[in-house]
Nucleic acid binder design. Structure first.
Lengths: 164, 164
DNA sequence: TGACATTACGAAGCATGCTTCGTATTTTGA
DNA sequence: TCAAAATACGAAGCATGCTTCGTAATGTCA
């Protein structure tokens, strides 16, 4: 196996540059997207995750927290935290379901729906800008490859049929 | 502009499926990589970030926290937290620099270096497995495109020359 | 040489993300 | 029908990630 010598004369694996590791590059991409999103949507005080949640709620009209978590492929407790923050800003309503008191039915408030409309353009531009360094053809290919990888690793509670 | 009608008769943007948004797909890819990494390296109790840090330290031999943060394109305070956790496990040494008492010089302990050697194979397999649903040719292309995007968005303190 | 900028940290606060454990409620099946 | 399984949450804890503010040490230049 190819190895490199250390200064002390021992041997170790040849360093694998971070910039060639898929995991590192993916983390950087995520970092870049979040930065672009904040830059584009910062004035609305909405994060990428919150935008995902608002979008999912716009499609569902009404849904319990577990369903929403599955929709956006996010942990349930994390989803709860995000929904609480949105509810605190009166963008989302979280009411106990009368028919099943275990569940909390969430829905967009008028303010939440209005914010979603206002933010939509900037949010989409941020998403597109993330791949802006690729050609149009490459962007489509890149997205297709990401979709294939994601399809190969379903999240534990993958439902999300409403989005397909 | 193409729009969809809501049930109440109003108009809104046609929903853009999450599964087509670059930001969402990138978040999922990150999620998938972390899961694969944990699966492969869980027995070593090392996260992808910690593996990056150990790798960077192996290359640097010795470095202050700010330099390490730049190496792995991570926020300085986050890096500090991770280094503290590694130090608490005796994998990293954090000593105040005698020549510049503002800085803490970090280096791998023998245990840290040994762990890095033991984990290396599994870590690399996890990185490769993340793109495992793509063909060999596609994987190379995917990595190249990610590198191009990353190169187009330098982190604020991009140094990392040692890795190139 | 002495105010001022710079640098490297630390602390605090917020927002993700995950796991595990516990609780309330509903459903199910013997 | 009633005990057990399943469901939806919540709380707690750990690990990222970020920002802002404050501090200590070093460098710099008028």
């Amino acid at each position: 196996m190819r190895q490199a010598k250390t200064r002390r004369g021992g041997t170790r694996h040849r360093p694998w540059p971070l910039s060639e590791r898929p995991g590192y590059l993916i983390r950087r991409l995520h970092q870049i997207h979040v930065a672009l999103f904040q830059e584009a949507c910062g004035e609305f005080e909405v994060t990428p995750l919150q935008y995902s949640l608002l979008s999912a709620l716009a499609v569902r009209e009404t849904a319990d927290q577990t369903t929403l978590a599955a929709d956006i492929a996010l942990d349930r407790t994390t989803t709860t935290g995000a929904l609480k923050r949105l509810a605190a800003r009166n963008l989302v309503e979280r009411a106990v379901n009368k028919d099943d008191r275990r569940a909390r039915l969430c829905r967009l408030t008028p303010a939440g729906a209005a914010l979603l409309v206002r933010i939509e353009g900037a949010a989409r531009r941020a998403h597109r800008a993330t791949l802006g360094d690729l050609s149009q053809r490459e962007q489509a290919l890149f997205i297709e490859m990401m979709q294939r990888i994601v399809a190969g690793h379903p999240s534990r509670d993958s439902a999300a049929a409403v989005f397909d």
